[in-house]
Design a protein around this nucleic acid. Structure first.
Length: 422
RNA sequence: GUGGGUGUGGCCUAGUGGUUAAGGCGCCAGGUUGUGGCCCUGGAGAUCGGGGGUUCAAGUCCCCUCACCCACCCCA
């Protein structure tokens, strides 16, 4: 066992895993472009207060899952635990309020949460997310949901279920929490230990409890949608109408409550059909209060974040990861003798300028060893260059994964011979 | 933070308390001087996660610890 290893909960993406990641990233880029979203790249580190104000110092993320530290100048900084706060900070800092609204952003990058690792949960995780800022209409919520749906569909994940809920305003939640507490109070003693704890700390979470899912008091609990005011109700109604019009299937789930403080009104999650532990692939919601919270003008906004690792897990589970195309090597040079290495270097360079994908062989190894390694690389051709070939300006073109017989040909003719036939 | 499971070369695995820890995959080399894939031969590579203990003897039993996996919790 190596004594040096990646930090706990953090993973290397090895070259053999990269094609899958690139595949996902490209799907994200293409989807965002189709909806006219623009990439924003914010620092991986922010002032700690950016996150504390956004996610709430009381939330788990804010209170115990942040990688916070003091830099040499004494500033309190933190590795970003999520994407929205940084985007909103940039929006406010750069005075984007004066740009024509709405504004559409997307991001793709690593995030950090100090949490105990398990399946689908990592201390460094990657997310693709979008933010639509300055559009208060229900159509904006649905545009973002539809973008997310389209992203998954492009990857072949067409069986995810969309669950939605509305959690209204902070005021709605306050009233609802009160009602919920009142409803559950007589039954606290019969709930699980975790739920008893949550009764004090975070009542909403009881609705999410695995242990108490079948508990009569939990099943008969009031739903937050019944506590929405007229405007929030109308908004949610409209969201559902648009989803229906688009033919996007969804289920109402009154148990989606959210750990982050900044969400308002519509919240949603995409989950695989056989939902297990860390199964949510991506989740989003409206956050009409956040921009003001971070020092901007009151501005409505909506967005989602989606975990790349969880997407990768789902693609692998469904056998969708193998189908990803890897561009094959066109040729491998095989230098032999005294003059081979120079000739190989020159030919390889020339072929690459012609747009071909060429691996240069390692001088000094036997022909047999070089051919073996060339064959394993999946290359279409081997280009054998020894003293004889160098002297007469030719090369032995040997098909490996391609059709045909080996033949000698002038170096100048190689680019044409290697041209891929479509 | 809580609970359960698992740690043997790069990977997968074998190994009733008893010589130098075995095999497969992979890697390297060779099977005559320049021709891959199949086959054959050889080689490199493991202080059996780490530390303590029991024993004449520990990969094997006990304790501690670390890591990974899984679940809770939490979250996207």
């Amino acid at each position: 066992m190596a004594d040096l290893r990646a930090p706990r909960g953090m993973h290397d993406v090895l070259p053999e895993d990269s094609p899958l990641w690139r595949h996902i990233r490209r799907a994200a880029e293409r989807t965002a472009a189709r909806y006219d979203y623009h990439e924003i790249i914010t620092p991986i580190v922010e002032d700690e207060s950016v996150f504390l104000r956004a996610v709430g110092a009381e939330s788990d993320i804010g209170s115990k899952e942040m990688y916070s530290f003091e830099d040499r100048g004494g500033d309190r900084l933190a590795l970003r635990p999520e994407g929205t706060a940084g985007v909103v900070r940039a929006y406010v800092e750069h005075g984007m309020a004066s740009r024509p609204h709405p504004l559409r952003f997307w991001y793709f990058g690593p995030f950090f949460r100090y949490d105990r690792p398990q399946a689908g949960r990592y201390r460094q995780l990657w997310q693709f997310g979008v933010e639509l800022i300055g559009d208060p209409t229900p159509a904006a919520d649905v545009e973002v949901m539809d973008l997310q749906r389209s992203f998954y569909a492009e990857l072949g994940l067409t069986d995810l279920t969309l669950r939605i809920n509305s959690i209204g305003t902070p005021e709605t939640r306050r009233r609802y929490v009160e009602a919920l507490r009142e409803h559950l109070a007589p039954h606290v003693a019969t709930l699980s230990k975790d739920s008893q704890r949550r009764f004090e700390t975070n009542v909403l979470r009881i609705l999410d409890s695995k242990d108490d899912a079948g508990h009569p008091a939990v099943q008969s609990a009031p739903a937050i949608v019944d506590y929405l005011d007229d405007e929030d109700s109308a908004h949610f109604e409209a969201v559902r109408g648009y989803l229906d019009a688009l033919g996007i299937a969804y289920t109402l789930d009154p148990r989606i409550v959210r750990g982050l403080d900044y969400y308002t009104r519509t919240v949603w999650e995409f989950e695989p059909p056989e939902a297990g532990g860390q199964s949510t692939v991506g989740a989003g919601g409206r956050y009409d209060g956040l921009i003001q919270l971070l020092g901007g003008q009151p501005t409505p906004a909506v967005g989602f974040g989606s975990g790349i690792e969880r997407i990768a897990i789902n693609l692998r589970d469904r056998g969708l990861a193998e189908a990803i195309e890897v561009v094959p090597v066109d040729a491998v040079t095989i230098p032999l003798g005294e003059a081979g290495p120079t000739a190989a270097l020159k030919l390889a360079s020339r072929l690459r300028e012609a747009g071909l994908l060429v691996r240069n062989g390692t001088p000094g190894r036997s022909l047999k060893a070089q051919l073996r390694s060339a064959g394993n690389s999946g290359a279409r051709y081997a280009l054998i260059l020894g003293d004889g070939e160098a002297a007469e300006g030719t090369v032995q073109l040997k098909p490996l994964a391609a059709e045909g017989d080996q033949r000698a040909l002038p170096v100048a003719d190689v680019p044409a011979a290697l041209k891929r036939t479509p």
